[in-house]
């Protein structure tokens, strides 16, 4: 299947003839009418309750709402997400490499920590860290640090898995060449394997930034003054529909933009990956598929991005996002 030439949607129906075109047109009108009807019903319900009155929306057009609530909230959201993604990258590199260590104890301990952080809900970690940090006097802003540390632990352990499977899925020649020129295992990881894995991880990192940004909204439950909490405060008690609408639009626009950026990066990376694969295939036609197959056997259940079958499958949709 060649997804570039043929979008998945066109596979399921022939190039329509005149009769089918008519049917499709009718279906289109009916479908459009149903969608429009749903929207109209919702709008009418809102209208009946007076939610669409201009007076109700005053609160979100006043400059003071933006300068005192929405923009500071947005800045807090972005700060938490940015600090968290940097921390998560550091955490992920350390634990991803630790999971590749020769020493069994290191591998095992890192594995337990990563699996634990991936399985525990972020909200539970945040609540726990908030109370814990609150009881330690030298931590200045418990809410902020609870949000950031919880996001680092979760996203960091996801990134650790990406680093690990990224390294495992590199062609074996890379590892062999590194040992052939006399690099130790650590040096090989540092100079040859991890940099390549990191490059191919770039789109996934952007996707993880979206996850961190979305999860930072959990901070509203532990009194961190991010966008959601500020919007809620601004709208209390009777304008939350309007203020939360604005906050939602801001979240969606930012995340959608980042998602598109990730997709573009993924396309660029894939372009690079393909040229590399072709060269590899020319040099040693047997080794490349073997390396891929072995990586699949060793590591079939990991993040979908580096699982070969899922990767191929997802290439078609360009979707590399996680929850």
């Amino acid at each position: 299947m060649s997804p570039k030439k043929r979008p998945a949607s066109s596979v399921f129906f022939d190039v329509p003839g005149p009769k089918t075109r008519r049917i499709t047109l009718i279906a289109n009108i009916i479908g459009g009418a149903i969608v429009a009807a749903i929207l109209v019903v919702i709008a009418m319900k809102l209208q009946v309750q007076g939610q669409l009155e201009p007076a109700m929306w005053n609160v979100v057009v006043q400059p003071i709402s933006w300068t005192a609530y929405i923009i500071p909230g947005l800045i807090s959201t972005l700060t938490a997400a940015a600090v968290a993604i940097v921390g998560a990258l550091v955490f992920g590199l350390i634990f991803g490499v630790a999971r590749l260590a020769h020493l069994g104890v290191v591998r095992w301990v890192a594995g337990v920590i990563v699996e634990f952080c991936r399985a525990v809900p972020v909200l539970l970690m945040m609540i726990f860290l908030w109370y814990w940090f609150g009881s330690i006097s030298f931590i200045p802003d418990p809410s902020f640090w609870a949000v950031v540390v919880a996001l680092i632990l979760y996203n960091g352990s996801v990134i650790a898995e990406l680093v690990r499977s990224g390294v495992i899925n590199l062609p074996t020649g890379q590892h062999e060449a590194a040992s052939a020129i006399g690099l130790t295992r650590i040096k090989a990881l540092q100079f040859v394997l991890v940099p390549q894995a990191l490059l191919s991880m770039l789109p996934a990192l952007v996707a993880q930034l979206v996850v961190a940004l979305k999860d930072s909204a959990l901070g509203s439950a532990i009194a961190y003054s991010e966008l959601l909490r500020e919007a809620r405060l601004l709208g209390t008690p009777l304008n939350t529909l309007q203020t939360l609408f604005v906050a939602s639009v801001i979240f969606i626009v930012i995340n959608y933009g980042l998602g598109k950026l990730g997709e573009r990066l993924a396309r660029t990376m894939r372009g690079r990956g393909l040229t590399l694969d072709e060269k590899m295939a020319e040099d040693m036609p047997i080794n490349v598929p073997a390396a891929g197959a072995q990586a699949m056997l060793e590591d079939p259940d990991d993040e979908p991005i580096f699982d070969e079958s899922t990767r191929l499958r997802q290439e078609a949709t360009g979707d590399r996002r996680h929850l």
Binding site: K214, T240, G259, R321
Partner: peptide, 15 residues
């Protein structure tokens, strides 16, 4: 996919 779950859940209760 792009709206935070927490926002959805807050909207459910307070809106």
């Amino acid at each position: 996919r792009d709206i935070p779950l927490t926002v959805v859940m807050v909207i459910m209760a307070s809106v």
